[in-house]
């Protein structure tokens, strides 16, 4: 997939666990896992906003475009 999710790297940098982020964002760990593994078909702006707020980062830090 051309869009890469860098959540794992940012979580590691912030020394934060997936379930902690899921709780802060208000989504299930299953949904967070879908996002991390690149299986997600779409991301809501509200979810993205909550993730950026929780991780104190920009959307560009989480999402990356890699040409095929």
């Amino acid at each position: 997939m051309a869009i890469i999710i860098n959540l794992d790297r940012i979580l590691e940098e912030r020394d934060m666990k997936s379930n902690e982020l899921a709780e802060m964002v208000g989504i299930t760990t299953a949904n967070l896992s879908i996002l991390k593994t690149g299986k997600a078909k779409a991301v809501r702006f509200s979810t993205l906003e909550a993730i950026c707020q929780a991780l104190d980062c920009q959307p560009g830090d989480i999402l990356e475009y890699l040409p095929d």
Binding site: I27, N31, L32, I34, L35, K39, A40, K41, A42, V43, R44, T47
Partner: peptide, 8 residues
């Protein structure tokens, strides 16, 4: 439905 399921 599948798309909706995979929207985070």
């Amino acid at each position: 439905m599948e798309e909706n399921k995979l929207t985070v």
